[in-house]
């Protein structure tokens, strides 16, 4: 961070300014003129908050993707299928037992086991053949998508939320004035706040694991130079297995989250695969903070675009990616 400010003072100033303006827009009450120019503040706040929540979901999906890529140079194009499969499994668990929280460990374990199987049986056999691995994952995603369509059909599912998570909560953020002229505060679905908090907690935990633990050290060393790490006597296959299992499990968990506050249907797998791709391209391959920033940017662009230019919200996402590629092909935080 300090390095960045020292190296690029102008860019730091611009980023700080944009952030300050955004924060001011969110916190300060809007004047009549502003409401006239930009529409109502509540709409803006809702767009910003859904953008951040969507970003949190994208981060959950993309974090595993970027970690797997960073360590193994393996683009797992079946990642979206793991997401959707996790969502469906979570739906089944919640349907059968009624406990929403129970779905998380169950799905994590099942999908992580599937990930371990994939890594051990498929990717290990074609190590170093990136193109072939990518094609295998494409084949897998085709097969998985069709099997899921077979089992769960074409309709869309929503995972039922527990009572303590449903309903709105009031945030101490000024959203406008109600009819009697009193200050109204923003009301926002509790579950989305919970998702946001959970994503932040998971992100911070991942950051700590990566930067402060022995396993994290091994992973970072593996990202930098795999051969050298192997030469020091580390059984890198175990590290690979751990990372792949974790990344797959995260995708599964994200499926439950996505199924709870959006819905699950065929096609969601490619949607989230695309989201992870764009997030990772924007943020930089193999970087967890990059994935967080990329997810936030893409989520915000998606939702703000949806509110203010409904037809072209996809194009915003794409434009951001194109601009990043044009000026920083390795991604915002990539090396």
């Amino acid at each position: 961070m300090r390095d960045f400010i020292a190296k690029r003072p102008v860019w730091s100033a611009i980023i700080a300014l944009v952030l300050a303006v955004l924060l001011w827009l969110v916190l300060a009450p809007w004047t009549e003129a502003m409401e006239e120019a930009f529409g109502r503040k509540r709409v803006f706040l809702n767009a910003i908050f859904s953008g951040i929540t969507l970003g949190a979901l994208y981060f959950l999906v993309a974090a595993g993707f970027t970690l797997i890529f960073g360590l193994m140079r393996n683009v797992n194009l079946a990642h979206g299928s793991l997401y959707l499969l996790g969502g469906y499994l979570g739906f089944e668990v919640v349907e059968r037992t009624g406990y929403w929280l129970l779905a998380f460990p169950v799905v994590f374990i099942v999908i992580a086991a599937l990930g371990l199987l994939l890594q051990h049986q498929v990717f290990r056999r074609m190590e170093g053949e990136e193109l072939r691995q990518t094609m295998v994952t494409i084949g897998l995603s085709i097969v998985l998508a069709d099997i899921m369509l077979w089992i769960w059909g074409g309709q869309s599912y929503t995972i039922l939320l527990p009572d303590w998570l449903s309903g709105p909560m009031t945030l101490p953020i000024h959203s406008g004035y109600d009819r009697s002229g009193d200050v109204a505060y923003l009301r926002y679905p509790l579950v989305r706040i919970a998702i946001l908090v959970a994503a932040i907690v998971i992100g911070v935990a991942m950051w700590f694991t990566l930067n402060k633990s022995r396993l994290g050290m091994l992973i970072r060393a593996g990202v930098d130079d795999r051969e050298m790490l192997t030469a020091t006597g580390i059984r890198i296959q175990y590290v690979f297995l751990a990372v792949f299992g974790f990344g797959a499990g995260m995708a599964g968990i994200a499926g439950i989250v996505g199924g709870s506050f959006q819905s699950l249907s065929p096609g969601e797998d490619t949607r989230f695969l695309l989201a992870s791709l764009v997030v990772v391209i924007v943020g930089g391959m193999g970087s967890i903070p990059g994935a967080a920033i990329g997810a936030l940017v893409i989520g915000l662009a998606d939702q703000v675009g949806l509110v203010y230019a409904p037809t072209y919200s996809v194009v915003f996402t794409f434009l951001i990616m194109a601009v990043v590629l044009a000026f920083r092909p390795q991604g915002l935080l990539g090396r």
Partner: peptide, 16 residues
């Protein structure tokens, strides 16, 4: 970009 990055970027543009 090169190699798998090309796949990822063209895939992203194709879905866009």
């Amino acid at each position: 970009t090169e190699g798998i990055y090309t796949i990822m970027i063209t895939l992203a543009i194709a879905s866009a």
